[in-house]
Design a protein around this nucleic acid. Structure first.
Lengths: 236, 236
DNA sequence: TTGCATATATTGTACATACAAGTCATTTAT
DNA sequence: ATAAATGACTTGTATGTACAATATATGCAA
């Protein structure tokens, strides 16, 4: 009769506490046995939940010590722009340059749209990301209106669209496809990123798959990599 | 007294049979219960082994049916260059332009070397990948001599260095870090890729972590993305 | 023939338990 | 004082069991 999976409930509970900093980064989670008591279950089930969180990159496990909360809140490698020289952190600021509005689909999108998406209008917005007060990334975003309501930028949690999805709508990013190109900066992009026309920039087209069926997020990013290269890592 | 892990033995046994085509792609593995009998253990342990193979991407599981052997030879997203227009396959050819030879470490490598690596010489080789007979990717590779012997290019399995590692040396790629930049083509690169100087190209620096301790593979790729953008997808 | 119920084999979830192995603070022996 | 042993607590591996959920073939009935 019960369709809910216990390990999944535990997994989501812990995940939410991590995302809301109840379990802050670098801290250790309660031990597996403590979770057993808390949820009235066995270590097998608790470990299954922790295993999932491990795969999702929220925690790491240390034999004999405990499970440590990792820094990163997901946020795909390619989105968290970090410089390469050591572990210095940068001041990152995001400015919404085009408020979310309803438009027709842009042919810029290189991925094929589903029928549902084609029959819907779409929500579009544009942002520019600054690092140390210099514009580095210009980002266009689209999604189907019939899959998710428009969200005003002043409702963004900490200015982040993805954090908003996760915390307010409980929508998680499940995966993505990307297409990378190196192209010369056009006049429009050069202006918005404060660089010369024709300088090589990294053009990334992304389709994010989400936990909500029918909802894909499309992105079109232009990155000035001269000062801040894009870094990402992954595990197999 | 026993240090060997049963699930790991089973995992390696199955992996080897997959790699040697004893369990060919698209076929189904013996059921979990059959493995239990074969190895004299319980489903919990067999499932742990299968879980690991799942994470490594060797199999996929189908509820109620079985575990299916996957095609893929690993080969990271960014290495398998694919065009974006549909699912067309291209004729890919790799030419070794600099035979593996022993040299000093190149300062081109942006990742910090370990002490072990610094104290060793390194093996270097260069390849150019052609798609439809046009040069598209120029690839430099390095690794520490004390972690792996030099391998002559005519010993490459199907011309692939990574396949050779997997099949002849049983070394698997565990993960990688990448750094992406968009840069103008230098004279040397423009010549080797048959393009004009200054055209934007995608520069990728990679460090591959392998299953062999102390062995990292360093790569420096220059991709002409004008005709064939780089595509990769990932799951969380 | 078609459709439905059933049996069976498979993977998925969950419980209960035991011991191995790593970490760390405390106690004990030198 | 220093080093070794101890014990408490943690995660890792493993056994054994039970039932749920899914996939597929088989046989029976309309």
């Amino acid at each position: 009769m019960k369709k809910i999976k216990k390990y999944h409930q535990i997994q989501e509970y812990i995940k939410k506490r991590i995302q809301t900093q109840k379990y802050p980064p670098d801290s250790y989670l309660p031990s597996e046995n403590e979770f057993c008591v808390q949820f009235g279950t066995t270590r097998t089930t608790v470990r299954k939940a922790l295993d999932e969180l491990l795969k999702e990159g929220f925690i790491e496990k240390e034999h004999g010590k405990g499970s440590k909360v990792l820094e990163r809140g997901k946020y795909l490698g390619l989105l968290s722009v970090k410089g390469f020289s050591g572990s210095t952190d940068y001041k990152v600021m995001t400015k919404v340059t085009v408020e979310p509005k309803i438009v027709e689909w842009d042919p810029l999108i290189v991925f094929p749209l589903s029928e549902d998406e084609k029959n819907s209008q779409c929500v579009y917005f544009q942002r520019v990301r600054y690092i140390d007060d210099k514009p580095v990334v210009l980002e266009n975003n689209w999604y189907a209106l019939n899959a998710l309501e428009p969200i005003k930028s002043d409702e963004f949690v900490e200015g982040s669209f993805f954090k908003t999805l996760s915390q307010e709508y409980l929508i998680e990013i499940m995966g993505a496809e990307q297409e990378l190109r190196s192209v010369p900066a056009t006049k429009e992009i050069a202006e918005k990123l404060g660089m010369a026309i024709g300088v090589p920039i990294l053009h990334i087209s992304i389709r994010f798959r989400t936990s909500r069926p029918n909802l894909n997020l499309y992105g079109d990013l232009y990155c000035n990599t001269t000062e801040y290269p894009i870094r990402n890592s992954y595990f197999l």
